[in-house]
Design a binder for these strands. Structure first.
Length: 430
RNA sequence: GUGAGUGUAGCUCAAUCGGUUAGAGCGCUGGACUGUGGCUCCAGAGGUUGUGGGUUCGAUCCCCAUCACUCACCCCA
């Protein structure tokens, strides 16, 4: 009886996992250049952490969390996002005491119980960064620059960074009332969803995709026109600094974010090839969050990229996942040869190279076929003749030539490579 | 969560009006070549037609349920 995987929970199979490894390795490299340090965060947190940070009335908290009661009665949940965990960790370990600025990055799975679609799974992986302890526009620009560098390093071609300012506790309430007033005045014209949003989450009025609402939006107030002086200057400076560095930011006056903690600079990256789930990353500033979770009054900013979506974009771009091929393929003929093949392979592997050993028993032809498929540049043939003469025959696949008796059966990696190299160069001279 | 669509071999797809033995290409295994890969040719393996019911003499085809995926909404990475 087959037992299927759970809906929305997928395997990342060998071909694809190579792409993931590459993404993570690349990200790690870029993060280190920006002096970010990795933090490994738990997957289960107290449910309260997200209620207080992401927001009670957000979809994520209201209907998407995998929350349950632990055996001791603790209300826990599979984390739906990374920022709250990172903040919790920052506060729990009083990181501000060790250094004024903390720059963290993390990889890992997140869980949201949504209806699955392409690019939207119930378990999905994020690559995220957070900076604590700076609230100047310079760090916002650095984070945006980092994100832009990352996308380039990933070879994402269609990534577009949209930005907006969400204001702060000073100016957002005023904007919010202006928006609600506008919404009330259009109540009959906006869609049903928007009428609901008007009550629950008015900012969401701005990014409705209904054609009717989209048309009306022109007449809606923009946060940009309602910022306090400090927020206005902050945002202008962020954009200016990015421009200096050649980071293109598309101003999206109607972009809002789904998590309550964001303020001031907010951004998201969209890319081609994903259908309607076209956001590959998003983030922003969250100045009150650390304080509200019991930490010091420090500002924060961060973003997360969705690994599945990055992989889909790369696939759509026709970028093949990296493949690794062993340097040697060992083809033993007969059981006596198998022992020697095993020993030789182990010696070469210990010396640091990749070796695939085929099973004896099969015809040389079929072993060669398999060798060709692995892409190994050299096939070591170990038959009765070789064992008798204590030597090996190496088939140079590219040169399509056999190298006989150039090394002994007890050769090491260095001598073997040297001999193969020598064989090639004498061949070229001839 | 709402609305719609699609499920046939490992993959991509056929199969007449509901008709008896469900096919092809690719891939896989082997052979042509008794110790030599890619190309070519030949052969073979591989299917409870997603699953469970129903209608019918007969179901891959029609109906119901269910599961999964896909698309849009919603949401967001």
């Amino acid at each position: 009886m087959k037992i299927p995987s759970v809906k929305g929970f997928h395997d990342v199979l060998p071909g694809e996992s190579a792409r993931w490894s590459r993404l993570e390795a690349t990200a790690r490299e870029v993060f280190l250049r920006y002096n970010f340090a990795e933090v490994r965060l738990p997957i289960v947190e107290r449910a309260e952490l997200f209620r207080r940070s992401v927001g009670e009335t957000t979809d994520i908290v209201e209907k998407e969390m995998y929350a349950f009661e632990d055996r001791d009665g603790t209300e826990v949940t599979l984390r739906p996002e990374g920022t709250a965990s990172a903040v919790r960790s920052y506060v729990e370990h009083t990181m501000q005491a060790a250094e004024p600025v903390t720059k963290l990055f993390y990889f890992g799975p997140m869980f949201r119980r949504e209806r699955p679609q392409r690019g939207r799974l119930r378990q999905f992986s994020q690559i995220g960064v957070e900076v604590f302890g700076r609230d100047d526009p310079g760090i916002d620009a650095e984070v945006l620059l980092l994100m832009s560098d990352l996308l380039r390093a990933f070879e994402i071609e269609s990534g577009e960074i949209g930005v907006n300012t969400l204001g702060c506790s000073e100016c957002r309430p005023g904007f919010r009332s202006a928006l609600v007033a506008w919404g009330e005045s259009k109540r009959d014209a906006i869609c049903g969803d928007c009428q609901r949003r008007l009550e629950q989450n008015p900012l969401r009025l701005l990014d409705c995709k209904q054609p009717g609402c989209e048309a009306l939006r022109e007449t809606a107030p923009k946060m940009l026109d309602h910022t306090c002086l400090a927020c206005g200057e902050h945002f202008a400076r962020v954009r200016q600094l990015c421009e200096f560095q050649g980071v293109e930011l598309a101003l999206r006056p109607y972009m809002v974010r789904g998590l309550d903690y964001y303020c001031r600079t907010a951004f998201e990256v969209t890319a081609q090839g994903l259908g309607s789930q076209n956001a590959i990353g998003g983030g922003g500033r969250y100045d009150g969050l650390v304080r509200s979770l019991g930490g010091p009054a420090v500002g924060g900013i961060g973003f997360a990229l969705g690994v599945e979506r990055l992989a889909l974009v790369l696939e759509a771009q026709g970028v093949e996942p990296p493949s690794t091929t062993p340097e040697f393929f060992v083809a033993p003929l007969g059981s006596a040869a198998e022992e020697h093949a095993f020993a030789l392979a182990h010696r070469l592997r210990s010396a640091g190279t990749g070796v695939e050993v085929d099973a004896g028993g099969k015809s040389l032809k079929s072993q060669m076929r398999r060798a060709g498929k692995t892409g190994a540049p050299y096939v070591i043939i170990l038959g009765e003749d070789e064992v008798a003469q204590q030597t090996i025959t190496v088939r140079d696949m590219e040169a399509r030539a056999d190298r006989r008796n150039v090394v002994g059966l007890d050769t090491n990696l260095e001598d073997l490579r040297a001999a193969l190299q020598a064989a090639r160069s004498t061949e070229e001279q001839a």
